[in-house]
């Protein structure tokens, strides 16, 4: 198994691509056939697509704090009068859709986590639409994203409680940018630098969920994580390089996570969770819920 981005890039030269390296390592680790591994990934892809369709149609969370924004963005895109671009906004819409379904306790595929599940799924489905990706290419996208995600998980963190939101949206956005680069013809080095560029901008992002829910600000951070994946991928494809090598960026993110106070790591004690409005919402939601769920 590759222990660093550098090793992953080297192995990818041997196997032909990052996706092929990941599939090879998965076969060794699990003892399963290539077909079985591909079928598992296909099933995950299907769940991603279904959650996007469900979110765009419109959902509302139990608390009513989130829901309906994927539908709003869909209507906005259809008017064809926007500032950024159709593909980026499609990725944004789809990322919102997945996380609105997640907040509503619907079925999603974690990617790398549930709270950040919209980014890779949103970017992949937007790219599929814009570039007419085949199913094989879509699966390669996910294997590429997963390979870089594994390195980040093993050398830093993918848990908001351990590393803050940089570990969740930062990781998912980095994974998506690397996979976008690969699917667009970039080299494994280009993908590695997309990871570095993305993580550098996400570094220090705190996890401050309002009322301890996975809704505010999670849904919107998924949207912006998806948009950033596109910009980082374009930068890397343009030949822009991170001065700090990708593995050192991952190490730095790990250290920042350790240094971050626990009030910023999924405890709902700091940041947006500690604003007057957040405290009021917390009171309203759990005061009502208490009588309903109490079986103590």
């Amino acid at each position: 198994m590759f222990g660093s981005i550098e090793e992953l890039v080297q192995l990818s030269k041997k196997h032909g691509s990052v996706a092929e390296t990941m599939i090879h390592e998965e076969m060794v680790h699990s003892g399963q056939t290539r077909e079985k591994i591909a079928a598992h990934m296909k099933q995950n892809l299907l769940v991603m697509q279904q959650s996007i369709d469900k979110g765009i149609a419109g959902v509302t969370s139990v608390t009513k704090l989130t829901g309906g924004d994927a539908k709003r963005m869909n209507d906005y895109i259809q008017k064809e009068n926007f500032l950024s671009g159709k593909t980026i906004l499609t990725a944004v819409r789809n990322a919102i859709a997945v996380n609105e379904v997640n907040a509503q306790m619907g079925l999603i595929c974690a990617n790398p986590t549930a709270g950040s599940a919209g980014v890779v799924a949103g970017v992949l489905t937007a790219a599929t639409e814009a570039m007419n990706l085949t199913e094989a290419q879509q699966l390669d996208f996910l294997f590429t994203a997963g390979a870089f995600g594994l390195v980040i998980a093993n050398n830093a963190s993918i848990s908001g409680a351990a590393g803050g939101c940089q570990a969740e949206i930062g990781s998912s956005s980095a994974m998506a940018s690397a996979a976008l680069v690969a699917i667009s013809g970039g080299t494994p080095e280009d993908s590695a630098h997309a990871v570095a560029i993305t993580l550098k901008n996400m570094m220090g992002l705190i996890c401050d969920p309002v009322a301890g829910l996975v809704e505010v600000p999670c849904v919107k951070r998924n949207a912006l994580g998806a948009s950033q994946a596109y910009i980082s991928a374009d930068m890397a494809l343009a030949g822009i390089r991170s001065v700090i090598p990708p593995d050192e960026v991952v190490d730095a993110m790990y250290k920042v996570g350790l240094q971050m106070p626990s009030s910023f790591k999924e405890t709902a004690e700091g940041g947006l969770a500690d604003t007057p409005t957040a405290r009021k919402l917390e009171q309203q939601i759990f005061h009502k819920e208490q009588t309903k769920t109490s079986i103590h």
């Binding site: 680790h29 591994i37 990617n111 790398p112 594994l150 963190s157 996975v214 790990y254």
Partner: peptide, 21 residues
Amino acid sequence: ANGSFKSVFDIIGPVMIGPSS
């Protein structure tokens, strides 16, 4: 950090009911 993650499906997955992995 830990090196505990071994499978691509530890990252892309699991399929689950929300809201937090």
